[in-house]
């Protein structure tokens, strides 16, 4: 009997699917074993990918040519990351862990700059503009949307955005009876924002449920297909 790779992968997939589904009866060693194996395999695979797809092709392979025949810029581009990687490896020793701060400081600084700039350019400003443009008839016409629909969509989005933001306004004043209560207008708007937030959470829950259901369907389908192919 010859065991093809598809058969072995199918058996393993079936087995581990059953082990994961055993969580329905509660936490059990089979489920934990499957989880541990998955974590180990995933970590090993990630390490292998980082070595073969990052360290070797981006650091080691160009190192020798850059040192021997590369220009100054190429040498710097190779040696600086190598030096930074060496600093991070210093975290192995508690005494030399401080050396990693140099590289980490560089990563944090560059990462913060990239993320903040990207958030401003790619999210905040375009989203504010999009919210404003919902009331632009020309923009609606360009999108083949009628004026009424555009106004309705814009109104809903505007109200939902404002009321949701006001919901998170927690400023309050002490009352005569000693209790703390927000201004009545803010209370009303916050209530509307609470409705919008509830709807949003319902949509997200539905999306999570739909994604989980799809994953379950895929696993059950694989089991059915595996059993059907036997």
């Amino acid at each position: 009997m010859v065991f093809s790779p598809d058969l072995i992968s199918g058996v393993l997939g079936f087995l581990f699917t059953i082990l994961i589904l055993s969580y329905l009866i509660g936490d059990n060693p089979l489920f934990r074993a499957a989880v541990y194996i998955f974590v180990g395999v995933a970590s090993g695979y990630a390490a292998a990918v980082i070595w073969w797809q990052v360290v070797v092709p981006r650091l080691l392979t160009p190192l020798l040519p850059a040192i021997l025949t590369g220009s100054l810029a190429e040498k710097i581009f190779i040696l600086v990351p190598l030096l930074g990687a060496g600093f991070i490896l210093m975290k192995i020793s508690p005494r030399l862990a401080g050396m990693a701060r140099i590289t980490m400081a560089f990563l944090v600084g560059v990462g913060a700059a990239v993320i903040i700039a990207g958030a401003l350019i790619g999210t905040l400003i375009p989203q504010v503009e999009a919210t404003i443009n919902f009331f632009d008839p020309q923009a609606a016409a360009a999108r083949n949307i009628g004026l009424a629909e555009a106004l309705a969509n814009g109104t809903i989005i505007l109200v939902g955005t404002v009321t949701s933001l006001l919901y998170f306004h927690f400023g309050a004043r002490p009352q005569a009876d000693g209790s703390m209560r927000r201004f009545w207008l803010i209370e009303i708007i916050a209530l509307a924002g609470r409705v919008f937030i509830g709807i949003t959470l319902g949509v997200i829950f539905a999306g999570v449920y739909a994604a989980a259901l799809t994953a379950l369907i895929e696993r059950i389908s694989s089991l059915v297909n595996f059993l059907g192919n036997l």
Binding site: Q127, A130, G207, A210, A211
Partner: peptide, 24 residues
């Protein structure tokens, strides 16, 4: 994915994403 589509929908509405296929 269905769980991420509601979050990405505003980017389509803002024309930052040209098209989106939400899940199954």
């Amino acid at each position: 994915s269905s769980q991420a589509a509601p979050m990405i929908q505003p980017y389509h509405d803002s024309r930052q994403v040209d098209g989106m296929i939400p899940g199954l």
